Amino acid sequence: HNLTITQGKLFFHYNPKLCLSEIHKMEEVSGTKGRQERNDIALKTNGDQASCENELLKFSYIRTSFDKILLRWEPYWPPDFRDLLGFMLFYKEAPYQNVTEFDGQDACGSNSWTVVDIDPPLRSNDPKSQNHPGWLMRGLKPWTQYAIFVKTLVTFSDERRTYGAKSDIIYVQTDATNPSVPLDPISVSNSSSQIILKWKPPSDPNGNITHYLVFWERQAEDSELFELDYCLKGLKLPSRTWSPPFESEDSQKHNQSEYEDSAGECCSCPKTDSQILKELEESSFRKTFEDYLHNVVFVPRKTSSGTGAEDPRPSRKRRSLGDVGNVTVAVPTVAAFPNTSSTSVPTSPEEHRPFEKVVNKESLVISGLRHFTGYRIELQACNQDTPEERCSVAAYVSARTMPEAKADDIVGPVTHEIFENNVVHLMWQEPKEPNGLIVLYEVSYRRYGDEELHLCVSRKHFALERGCRLRGLSPGNYSVRIRATSLAGNGSWTEPTYFYVTDYLDVPSNIA
């Protein structure tokens, strides 16, 4: 807008934040220059609390790290170098490059900038070799853009010569660093050979998330399962459950009422301010606690030095998902009996873990797994792929695949051998790939016309006998059925096997 004052003059007093240069501009645009008398524009009460600059400061050096910015700028000295009290560095987070010096300023003089007072450097006698002032900004957020400017702080001049310097606002972004852990990993099994893994992005990506790394490792069953005799009275049979499938998407929606109208769909109840505040506090606490764990609990591995020492970490090797089922080394339970199943799973520490690289999504279907087997899954978020990966501390989750139908069934015939004193040795093959492992066998036998009897055969007993022995049988026709019990439950009964026990007292003698 054009402003013209045809008559009258300007009068400025007691404006401590208004620089004289701005008042002189007002004289020019209003056409009143030359009308004012000496005392109409006070030299001592206008701009006496402001830094009124008329020179431009330029930054000469900028260096960044993930949490620091090192700045240096060209030296500046007023005509009387004693008038320079120091520099004021202003900075704040700036997602967009549209910041002005006066953003967030209120009537009390406060604003949204963080201000650092910096002492002037030592003055050199040689004007050509003056030290460049600077400042190291610490405690910054990774991968965050900051708006920065600097200006001088000078003393009051009796001659009211307006001098000083100020830089333009520059924008500097800190470097990326390792992201925080992925949030809320959930693993479920939808079949006997697959596990579905879902997660949420890290709360602090500290860069642009480029991919996720998912490692999985087959877990050995508890050692007590191999040692305890679950045929003993009072000892509860062990059981394991597989990871249940995901709930429906509708039930997972946030901010939804727990109660549904019987007449149909209901609208979600909005969260109160107290609920939102509580969630923010919980989120802040979780982030602080995660940072504490990362800094205190997890110790970084030592990389190899120039002395030739090897990095103890196993090298990563990509495998196809079809090879995942046989990740671990199978060892027989008892070496003397080769027909026992290889369900003991000690994992070799030198073995390469299978892994998958996930790009542009937060889910993965891990296939080719062994049925009813526990897996430990390790999830890392990465925001750099080359020249070397920059990934987060791992988040861990466990899951067990679903049982395989008929995996616990005894394959092959049940054979028998009759000894003296009416002892019958029953023999059968253990299931080759049971659900988890076989903890015991149930032997059901009966003599024709009598009630059915049951015998429990422990895992250890089966390994020693290759089956079991029935003792003290009365003469007669017998039928026997056997079924295995694994961590997933009972298998199917075998087809009945028949044998006849004679009275050993009636056996004919070869003595003449």
Rank of each mutant, 00 (worst) to 15 (best):
E247G: 08
E388G: 15
V424K: 01
E417M: 05
S305D: 08
N208W: 12
Q429E: 15
S458W: 04
E378S: 07
N360T: 12
E227H: 09
K271A: 14
G308T: 09
G491L: 01
E417A: 13
G325T: 13
Y498V: 07
V324Y: 03
A381P: 01
D450S: 14
Q219P: 06
A330S: 15
F499E: 00
R353H: 10
T502K: 07
Y500F: 03
A330H: 14
A394S: 07
V299S: 09
R370V: 11
F246Y: 13
E258T: 14
N255W: 15
F215E: 03
S243R: 11
E224A: 10
D311P: 07
V457I: 08
E442H: 07
F419L: 09
P238R: 06
T241C: 12
N339D: 12
K317Y: 09
E249V: 11
W216R: 08
I482F: 02
P332H: 12
P314F: 14
P332M: 11
S320D: 09
N435L: 00
V331R: 11
A394F: 09
A395S: 12
Y292Q: 03
R319M: 09
V414I: 13
V296I: 06
H211L: 10
E420P: 13
E224N: 15
P245E: 09
V345K: 06
E279K: 02
G234T: 08
E356T: 14
H454R: 10
R353D: 15
T328Y: 14
R316H: 10
S492T: 08
S315L: 10
S239V: 04
L235S: 07
Q275Y: 08
R483D: 00
E351R: 06
T386W: 14
G306F: 12
V214P: 00
K233V: 15
G234Y: 06
V424R: 04
R481H: 04
V329F: 05
V414Q: 02
A309S: 13
L487Y: 12
K317P: 07
L277F: 11
T340C: 05
A463H: 08
S268G: 10
C468L: 06
L225D: 04
S320F: 11
T502V: 13
A330D: 02
V296M: 10
C267W: 02
T401G: 00
Y292E: 05
K361Q: 07
A335Y: 06
L280V: 14
A381V: 05
A336K: 12
V358G: 10
N360I: 12
Q219D: 09
L473N: 02
F499Y: 01
P431C: 09
E350T: 10
S305H: 03
S243M: 13
H294Y: 05
V214F: 09
V345S: 11
K460F: 07
D506N: 15
Y498A: 13
G264E: 04
V299A: 10
V423Y: 10
P475T: 10
E224G: 10
V327H: 08
S248E: 04
G472R: 06
C267T: 06
D261N: 12
P300V: 04
G308C: 14
N421W: 09
S239G: 03
S305M: 07
V423L: 03
K302L: 10
T494A: 03
S262R: 13
A395N: 07
D450W: 09
F419S: 08
W242G: 13
S392V: 02
E420K: 13
